[in-house]
Structures are given as structure tokens and as C-alpha cells.
């Protein structure tokens, strides 16, 4: 089993406030890793560090070492736009652009220089099929994406992320704004996607972590308390705090 991400002694500050303390983690390839923990524990912050989305926030300071496929992601040689192409992101609230379904999915490939219509058509179809939404939208690709339902919008956002052919997908509570039926569709989809992609998913829902993930990392107050196979962490947690959290004693 090889790792796609390896993090050593990573700390992060928002101004004076230290949001992440000494994080060490190795994320295995083609698996689903869930980040759990109470609100404000730093799990989303850590997720957004992996593709450097935190660059957009002023006053963030990061120390330590984060390697993606053995490359230091903070090295000046790394093109951050290329990094984000390799490590895609799906957000908490579905955020399709106010343009057609087709243009939404084609946005990424176009950004990275693909202009050939036939090639774009292929990519759009492949991405929408991979995101399990092709059959629902194939007849209205030119319609505005904002006309889709919330669940469809989120799958469209997944398709949009897949269209740039990433190796890895970061999902920040991708189902928290959705109804139960849409949620289970996304969960099924995520389990299919791990055949091809490495997926890291922040979730507030512990049942969701149990249902879909292979590995689970438990964050608390900016620390990574425990990182284990999901089955193990939920059956025999090593740390008292993990046990208290998953048995519902706090959080």
C-alpha cells in the first residue's frame, strides 16, 4: 500500500491563533479517508491545506512538511494551479457557476488549455457519467446549472472536479446541505469513485464515516488524535478522547 499524501509535524496559525498542532498523517492511495471531529477542530482547515486553498485566506502561516507524491507542496517550484488540478475539491454547499451544465464541466479542462470541441465533448460526457448524473442531464446540457436540484448540483460539482482528471478529491462535508436521498446517492458515488481516485472527506456524520470510509482520522482542538482503519477506530478506539467522541459523550 502506497501513500499519496504524507504530512510531518505540520502546524497552522490564523494570525495568533494556532488552528492545527503537529499533524502527522499518511493518506493511502485509492482509498476513502474520513476526517471526523467536533466543529472548529481543524479538520476542514487541514483538508484545505492539502491543495493549498488556504492560500486564499490572509494571515495564514504554515510550518512543517506536506508531500504530495513525494513533492513538497509548498516548494516554490510547485505551480499551485497544477497542484489544484491534481487535487480537486468539492465544497460543502454545491457551488456550480451560473452558466450551462456543459460549461460548468468544461470549465476546468478549458482552464488547462483544452479547446478542441470534440475532446471537450468527450471529457464532459465521461465526467458526468463518472459522477452518475449523465442520464439526468444529457438532454439539457445547455441549460443553466442553477436550475438543477441541490443533490444534482453537488454531483455536477463532483463531475466538474473530475473533468480535470485529478488523482485525488477533497470533499468538505459534501452532503451536509443535502436531503437524505441525495446524500445516499453521493455516498454510493463516492464508494465507486475510490476505484480511480483517492478521496478525503470531512464529515460531521459518524454513520457516514462508518458507511463509506476505509480510514478515519479523528481531530480535536487542532490535534490529530487518532488515525486508523475505520473498522478499528469505531470498534476499538485507542484514545480515550476518541472513544468519548464516537460514543457521543461530547461534540
Amino acid at each position: 500500500m502506497s501513500n499519496i499524501i504524507s504530512v510531518k509535524d505540520m502546524c497552522l496559525w490564523y494570525g495568533e491563533h494556532q488552528a492545527l498542532k503537529n499533524i502527522n498523517i499518511e493518506i493511502p492511495k485509492k482509498s476513502i479517508t474520513a476526517f471526523i471531529g467536533p466543529s472548529g477542530c481543524g479538520k476542514s482547515t487541514f483538508l484545505k491545506t492539502l491543495n493549498r486553498m488556504n492560500d486564499l485566506i490572509p494571515n495564514v502561516k504554515i510550518t512543517g512538511d506536506i508531500r504530495y507524491e513525494d513533492t513538497d507542496i509548498f516548494s516554490p517550484k510547485v505551480d499551485v494551479n497544477h497542484l489544484r488540478k491534481e487535487i480537486g475539491m468539492v465544497f460543502q454547499k454545491p457551488n456550480p457557476f451560473p452558466m450551462s451544465i456543459y460549461d460548468n464541466v468544461a470549465y476546468g479542462p478549458r482552464t488547462h488549455g483544452i479547446t478542441n470541441k470534440i475532446q471537450l465533448d468527450e471529457i464532459v460526457e465521461f465526467a458526468l457519467r463518472d459522477a452518475a448524473i449523465w442520464n439526468e442531464v444529457k438532454d439539457r446540457l445547455k441549460k443553466n446549472a442553477l436550475g438543477l436540484s441541490g443533490g444534482q448540483q453537488q454531483r455536477l460539482c463532483i463531475a466538474r472536479a473530475l473533468a480535470v482528471q485529478p488523482k485525488m478529491l477533497l470533499m468538505d462535508e459534501p452532503t451536509s446541505a443535502l436531503d437524505p436521498i441525495s446524500t445516499s446517492r453521493i455516498e454510493e458515488l463516492v464508494m465507486e469513485l475510490k476505484e480511480k481516485y483517492t478521496i478525503v472527506m470531512v464529515t460531521h456524520n459518524m454513520q457516514q464515516a462508518v458507511r463509506v470510509s476505509d480510514y478515519t482520522a479523528f481531530f480535536l482542538l487542532g490535534e490529530l488524535v487518532e488515525f486508523e482503519k475505520t473498522d478499528n477506530i469505531f470498534s476499538q478506539p485507542q484514545d480515550k478522547r476518541t472513544e468519548d467522541y464516537i460514543t457521543g459523550r461530547f461534540g
Binding site: 454547499k93 482552464t111 480535470v164
Partner: peptide, 27 residues
């Protein structure tokens, strides 16, 4: 223009000017 549009575009690897031109300006 919602911040989520900018995040979405940056998340796909778009550079600053592309985000401004394709997502922010039309709005």
C-alpha cells in the same frame, strides 16, 4: 458575486485572472 464561485474556480486550478475574467466579471 458569491465567494463560493471564486473558490470553485480556484479549486479547479484556475489562475487569478481567469477566475476574475470568467467567473467574477460576468457577475
Amino acid at each position: 458575486v458569491p465567494q463560493s464561485y471564486r473558490e470553485g474556480a480556484f479549486g479547479l486550478g484556475a489562475g487569478k485572472w481567469r477566475v476574475v475574467r470568467t467567473v467574477v466579471l460576468p457577475g
